[in-house]
Design a protein around this nucleic acid. Sequence first.
DNA 1: ACCTGAACACCGTTCAAGT
DNA 2: ACCTGAACACCGTTCAAGT
Lengths: 191, 191
Amino acid sequence: MRYRREEIVAKAVEALDAYGLADLTMRRLGTELGVQPSALYHHFANKQTLLAAMADEILVRASWPTEGDWMDRAGAICLVLRDQLLAYRDGAELVATVHAFGLGATQPVGLLSAALDEGAIGALGPTAVRTLLHFVYGHAVDEQTHLQAAAAGAIDDAATSGDGRDGDDFATGLGIVIAGIQVMRAVSPSR
Amino acid sequence: MRYRREEIVAKAVEALDAYGLADLTMRRLGTELGVQPSALYHHFANKQTLLAAMADEILVRASWPTEGDWMDRAGAICLVLRDQLLAYRDGAELVATVHAFGLGATQPVGLLSAALDEGAIGALGPTAVRTLLHFVYGHAVDEQTHLQAAAAGAIDDAATSGDGRDGDDFATGLGIVIAGIQVMRAVSPSR
DNA sequence: ACCTGAACACCGTTCAAGT
DNA sequence: ACCTGAACACCGTTCAAGT
């Protein structure tokens, strides 16, 4: 079988969802494609590069909001981002790792920067964007870890459902960060 | 050589600082102690448990603030936490990972919860604590990654020093989150 | 352009046996 | 109580050679 880069990324995302990040090895992906693991290195310099391409693929599949004023849009982008991270097994950990490593996952940064720029937030913008992303990634990784632990049966549903790491909790936390951005914008106005 | 659990944790933290998390293998730690890797499994069920003990050790070494009203104290705790994470090579990644995995690193949660409780913040408390921690861990991991990339010479200092991921940026981001907590506390008062 | 086959230099973990 | 020695079942990556 002969593949192109795009096909390998698609298959890798599929394998991620099926087996999880820990079991997504170059050897396993090779088997999944009916190819030797070494063949993958014709398409990707190393595993990190492949993971970055997977993160970008997952992010590009989301339908990002474009309507609303800057505050509504920033909030909507964060909600869509969270949903997209939770839509794939270990999606939050994958995207957060790639972002931290600085090799990809830049789409949310661009979208949020554009939204906040319309808010004439000035020098606060980059810090505000990073603060939003730290919240979204941190919360999504937390939530996904606990959802998967519960699904594995290690923790029973009754014990975990009450600790608030759910959609309401996400909305509340997001509200805290956005309210904080508004306050700091008022304190040190743009320019 | 015969060791007790405490001595192994201390040596492991030392090895972390010297070689980094990626090179802290059970085999390498065994060598460092003059012991077979399998000997470590007499003291720790697995590597995750050892990493959790290391995270707790790093956190317990900090001198945590106890003075001031709830807001000042919450802010001071976050500043001390950040400093402590940056004080050890890969300290931020280690503690963030252990915390996400749910096997330790609970001290900051307890300290922040206690501080916010004095603020009579009610049902918002747990969400506020998690939002603060997502910010601190996310920011510290980011900063440490970039500091170490710069130290490795991959990026020159001039290019990185201007991107704002420094102490001022941390203070600004922390200001956003704390201001947000104040606002949301006012909106939905305790109880 | 894309893949095979074989190797290199590693991992975490288990377990019987030793002192 | 703590450690050794040997094994098991893996990793990511490289590289000459094939088509």
